[in-house]
């Protein structure tokens, strides 16, 4: 009796989309190590939007204010070259990948443009929303900042490796 009542209550109140979105966010590197409740708070701060192929997410030089997480679809990052030549492709990103994370650390112009190449849904997390969240829940902030540091350190290692490879060739 008690068990069936509990199941009924759970069925009435349980949000089915919540579990699915949470398991997706768990796989995003910036959110590693966050508890279910902490991830739930992040989910409340996230804004979702459907994007279609050809849409521009941001332009190079525009002030970065958000971090983008690809739920579905694909996004291309391109960088202009100073001489006005063909823009250089920096990466082609897919589901679970994150970009624009530097906006969480500094209000500076974007160093590349982002363009949707395949329809999909993208999660946007705004610096101001995140800052307000971190002010009230510093434990989330500590984990996020650690994850960003790990991501930047990996990026630095990869850049060093590329430089070494270029020198050798």
């Amino acid at each position: 009796m008690n068990l069936s009542f509990y199941r009924l209550i759970k069925k009435l109140f349980n949000d089915e989309n919540h579990g699915e979105e949470m398991s997706f966010l768990r796989g995003v590197p910036i959110f590693f190590g966050l508890s279910s409740h902490q991830l739930g708070r992040i989910m409340q701060a996230i804004q979702k939007r459907k994007y279609y192929a050809g849409e521009i997410l941001f332009q190079e030089g525009q002030i970065g204010k958000a971090v983008f997480i690809i739920k579905t679809g694909r996004v291309e990052l391109v960088k202009n070259v100073p001489e006005g030549g063909e823009p250089r492709l920096l990466g082609n990103l897919g589901p679970g990948q994150i970009f624009g994370e530097m906006a969480l650390l500094e209000h500076r112009p974007r160093t590349a443009s982002a363009r949707v190449v395949e329809d999909g849904e993208i999660f946007l997390l705004y610096t101001a929303t995140l800052e307000a969240l971190l002010k009230n829940h510093p434990a989330i902030g500590v984990k996020l900042m650690r994850n960003i540091a790990v991501m930047l350190s990996a990026l630095l290692r990869r850049t060093n490796q590329e430089l070494e490879n270029q020198k050798k060739s």
């Binding site: 804004q47 459907k50 994007y51 941001f58 525009q62 204010k65 958000a66 949707v116 101001a128």
Partner: peptide
């Protein structure tokens, strides 16, 4: 509102609203 906003303005619009809210 955000789905009907042109994609290149979404970041600025949401940033603006987030700052107001914060």
């Amino acid at each position: 509102i955000f789905d009907s906003t042109p994609s290149e303005y979404v970041e600025n619009l949401l940033g603006f609203m987030a700052e107001l809210n914060a």
